[in-house]
Deep mutational scan, measured.
Amino acid sequence: LVRYRTISKIPQITLNFVDLKGDPFLASPTSDREIIAPKIKERTHNVTEKVTQVLSLGADVLPEYKLQAPRIHRWTILHYSPFKAVWDWLILLLVIYTAVFTPYSAAFLLKETEEGPPATECGYACQPLAVVDLIVDIMFIVDILINFRTTYVNANEEVVSHPGRIAVHYFKGWFLIDMVAAIPFDLLIFGSGSEELIGLLKTARLLRLVRVARKLDRYSEYGAAVLFLLMCTFALIAHWLACIWYAIGNMEQPHMDSRIGWLHNLGDQIGKPYNSSGLGGPSIKDKYVTALYFTFSSLTSVGFGNVSPNTNSEKIFSICVMLIGSLMYASIFGNVSAIIQRLYSGTARYHTQMLRVREFIRFHQIPNPLRQRLEEYFQHAWSYTNGIDMNAVLKGFPECLQADICLHLNRSLLQHCKPFRGATKGCLRALAMKFKTTHAPPGDTLVHAGDLLTALYFISRGSIEILRGDVVVAILGKNDIFGEPLNLYARPGKSNGDVRALTYCDLHKIHR
């Protein structure tokens, strides 16, 4: 019993810090008490220290592992850092350059016999395009090294910054494609005289377009951006097909006994025919423009016929181009109408809503002055909100995010209106959640004399007048207030005048 009563005193000691020596009952000389009392004092002292730490809000209350900052290894790049964003855009520009100039170089340097010394005699450094290609190869190699040090988000939505895990993730992902696209074939085969082989191998750079397509997928929600990307894709495919079309004609031209190829026909049409040795002929500019003209006309199913396939190889390629053109029509131009419709969806919704308003007016036989006010209010409210119901949009977000959005939407009023000066951010967040926005066209009466005042109004834009009878008592403008002081009276009061809008007004109100 003594032991039980001794232990039962522990909660009292913990909360009230009572010393055991003052209790005459606990001072009985028993061996059990002498053993338990020192333990009680020690526990009391420890609990006292913990309570003191909690009340003082000291940093040592938290466990040590929670006080440590997340460790980022040296030379690790955050995937959302500004440097990584700028670097990704730079790589994107280099990939676009590669997609345009690599097929052009591979096709127009394929057994090209233009006048001038061969590239091997001039030297590697004197070729501007080769120098640019070398810079692109170096940048792609540097990009691989950067990807080995860039964080990523795993399946659990955690940012991984450990170098080993980053390397394994990159090896399992895009490393092989990036490595093949970054191989400097110019340096590996330079001086061997195989410019045709170098041009063909350099087309491996186009593998990076797969990554670019995935990154550009984030802009699919913007109709104008999608339309622009589709047109660029169409032009890029036409450019690639033009390079292939020229390569076919250029390879067949020296081996044909009869002059029936499209390059021969082009030379005869523009007065620059090929001679018996295969030299001469149109310039590279004429060849490229004509090839691009043929691919565009074939892809769009126009086909004027002034550039036509004559050999079997050219006919087979033309059939493939027609098939590609039909697929592009289905996948690209078939979506253009939907994209344009999405661009004008706001206008369509406006006309639909206006039609419903006019049908309501016609069905209920609203008189002319009231009908005009109804239409003007709808037009003004639509121009202010673009038909978007803010309350319906915010309803799907958590309250903390709703408060931040409301604070942002009402920031101008909260910053410049005098009653809100000096208020804490928590108070402003709470008030912003209570605001209701209303609009009024010129001549609209917001409050009639004798109406119950259940709200306090803040003028965000425009001006109003307060009338008693036919006498203008006051004219209020931006950041002015009218209405009933909230919670100042037990019952809502009545208006002693009319409140009429002089201009288009936007008002925020808080109800009782």
Rank of each mutant, 00 (worst) to 15 (best):
L355T: 10
S383I: 09
N310D: 03
M256L: 15
L414Q: 01
Y350W: 09
R362K: 13
F101I: 06
L94G: 10
Q415N: 08
K395L: 12
Y219W: 05
A155K: 14
S301L: 10
K172L: 05
I284V: 09
Q372I: 06
L206C: 05
E112Y: 15
E158K: 13
L292M: 01
R356H: 12
Q269V: 01
N275L: 05
Q365I: 01
F397M: 06
L299K: 01
L188T: 04
F108S: 01
G334D: 05
K172A: 04
F397G: 03
G443K: 03
T290C: 01
P70T: 08
L230P: 03
K285I: 09
I324G: 08
L109S: 15
R214I: 03
P163I: 04
I237G: 01
P103G: 01
R205F: 01
V336M: 10
S220N: 09
L229V: 05
P163C: 05
H364Y: 04
A107P: 01
G116C: 05
G249A: 03
R358D: 01
L201H: 01
Y65Q: 14
G303W: 01
A348N: 03
L446M: 06
S81H: 05
H162E: 09
F360Q: 01
L201Q: 01
A125C: 01
Y219M: 10
P419Y: 15
H73C: 05
K215M: 04
I366Q: 01
A432G: 06
E195P: 06
P441H: 09
N265A: 14
N156R: 09
L409E: 03
E221G: 13
Q269N: 03
A291R: 01
A238K: 01
F228K: 01
V212H: 07
H364L: 04
N312R: 01
A403I: 01
A291W: 01
G271Q: 03
R165V: 07
K215T: 03
Y344D: 08
L374P: 03
L343T: 12
C122M: 01
M433P: 04
A125S: 14
A403P: 02
C417S: 13
L227E: 01
P442T: 03
V180Y: 01
E115I: 15
R358G: 03
Q372N: 06
K66L: 12
V336Q: 03
A330P: 13
T311Q: 01
D143R: 01
K395D: 07
V160M: 09
F397C: 05
H169Q: 11
L414M: 08
V357S: 03
E195D: 11
T290D: 01
Y274F: 03
Q415G: 11
T352Q: 11
A167I: 05
R205C: 01
Q365D: 10
V393C: 08
L230H: 14
V210H: 11
R205S: 01
Y124K: 01
N368R: 09
N250E: 15
A155H: 13
H380R: 12
A213E: 05
V142W: 01
Y170R: 01
M328Y: 01
K172R: 13
G191A: 05
Y65R: 10
A181P: 03
R74N: 06
C232N: 01
P254I: 10
F171R: 01
V159A: 01
A235E: 01
T311V: 01
S258M: 11
P118T: 15
V321L: 13
D143L: 01
V132Q: 01
R218S: 05
R356V: 06
H79M: 01
V95P: 01
L394S: 01
L93V: 12
T150A: 03
I183L: 09
C400K: 03
T385D: 07
Q127L: 05
L109A: 06
S194L: 14
L110Y: 05
R205W: 01
M251G: 01
P419A: 09
R421T: 13
I237E: 01
P398Q: 01
E359A: 05
G123A: 06
K285G: 04
Y80E: 04
K272T: 01
Y65I: 07
P70E: 14
L428Y: 04
M390N: 06
L216F: 09
T102F: 01
I96L: 07
M139K: 01
K84G: 01
H162S: 13
F397I: 06
P369S: 07
Y104T: 01
N310K: 02
G334H: 06
E375I: 15
V447R: 02
F108W: 01
Y170H: 01
N265W: 01
W240H: 01
F185N: 04
Q353W: 04
Y329C: 14
R342V: 10
L145W: 03
H239A: 01
Q415W: 05
D88G: 01
I72C: 06
H239R: 01
P128L: 14
A125R: 14
W174P: 04
A204H: 01
I366W: 01
H380C: 10
T352G: 10
W245Y: 01
A449F: 11
R371D: 05
G422W: 01
F435E: 02
I284A: 03
C427D: 03
L93K: 01
D217A: 08
L200D: 01
V168D: 06
T437D: 07
A430T: 12
D268H: 04
Y222A: 10
K434H: 10
G303I: 01
Y344H: 12
V180M: 13
V95L: 08
A167N: 01
G164Y: 11
T295V: 13
G164T: 13
Q379L: 06
I72K: 15
D186V: 09
I135C: 04
G164F: 14
E359H: 04
T437M: 09
E314R: 01
S313A: 15
E157D: 12
L266T: 01
I248C: 01
F360P: 02
G280H: 01
V131E: 01
L197Y: 10
I248W: 01
L67W: 13
E112H: 14
P163F: 06
R373M: 06
P398A: 01
T76R: 01
Y288D: 01
N335S: 03
L187G: 12
R362N: 07
F228P: 03
A423R: 01
L230Y: 10
Y344W: 05
V302G: 01
V212C: 06
L93Q: 01
P369Y: 01
L323Y: 03
A99Q: 01
R349S: 10
E158I: 09
L292T: 01
A99C: 01
Y246H: 01
T98L: 01
F296G: 01
W262M: 01
N250M: 13
G223N: 04
P118K: 15
P70C: 05
A348Q: 13
E375S: 04
F101D: 01
I144Y: 01
K287T: 01
N312T: 01
I183H: 01
L109K: 05
N386W: 04
H351K: 06
A225N: 05
Y377A: 10
L67E: 03
I339V: 07
L229Q: 03
A235G: 11
S337W: 03
Q341M: 11
F397W: 08
I198C: 10
I405Q: 01
L236A: 01
S258Q: 13
C400Y: 10
W75A: 07
T445F: 13
R214W: 04
N335P: 13
T438H: 08
N310C: 01
P282V: 01
S220C: 13
S313R: 04
C400F: 03
F435I: 10
V447M: 12
F228Q: 01
G281N: 01
I332C: 06
I166D: 01
G305P: 06
L67R: 05
A291D: 01
R342I: 05
L200Y: 05
P70M: 06
K287L: 03
V289N: 01
K418M: 08
Q402L: 03
D404W: 01
S297F: 01
I141H: 04
G116D: 04
T295D: 01
C232H: 01
Q253C: 06
M179W: 08
P273S: 03
L446T: 01
V357D: 01
G199E: 10
W75S: 04
F296A: 01
I183V: 10
K172F: 09
V86W: 06
E221R: 13
I260E: 03
L299G: 01
N368G: 09
F333Y: 03
E112C: 04
S192P: 12
Y274H: 01
I340Q: 03
Y293W: 05
V86M: 12
K202Y: 01
